[in-house]
Amino acid sequence: MTETLNIDSIRTNFLNQDYDERHFELTPEQIVDYAEACGETALRYTDPEHPDFQAPPTFASSFQPGKRLPDGFPKLPGLGMDAGKAVSPKAPMRPGVPLVGRTHLHDVYAKTGRSGRMTFMVTRMEVYDPDQLLLATADTRIVIRERPTKVAP
């Protein structure tokens, strides 16, 4: 017997509803450290005096929501692992600008293979500036390998 997530029910009850909001503000030093550690050489990411100084395009991937999943979400029937991230920068993130990141469950789907069913959940954070301009989206793919539950004798 295997305990599984009800994908249709999750889609109906949780998809595309913001469940978390967090605030961020970047400093020039933070941007330079992030960029140089990645190996960036473009001056718009490494030189605070550059007229187009901004965070590197993957920075939004580092923003973490306060909650991993929405309140009331079903118990996961296995270990959730970070399977990947996708980031889409839309406009520059500058230092000293208050940012807000709102997170929703963007997709949920299952794949079945020889080792059983794996469920993939995609959470998406959308990052906005104070004028509500969308600066970036950052997706996190969590994969859950569903494990068999113990059957009572």
């Binding site: 992030y34 960029a35 550690a37 990645c38 190996g39 960036e40 050489t41 590197p56 395009p57 993957t58 991937s61 991230k85 980031v87």
Partner: peptide, 8 residues
């Protein structure tokens, strides 16, 4: 950081 390497 791996993702940042790719962008760099």
């Amino acid at each position: 950081l791996s993702q940042g390497y790719l962008a760099a």
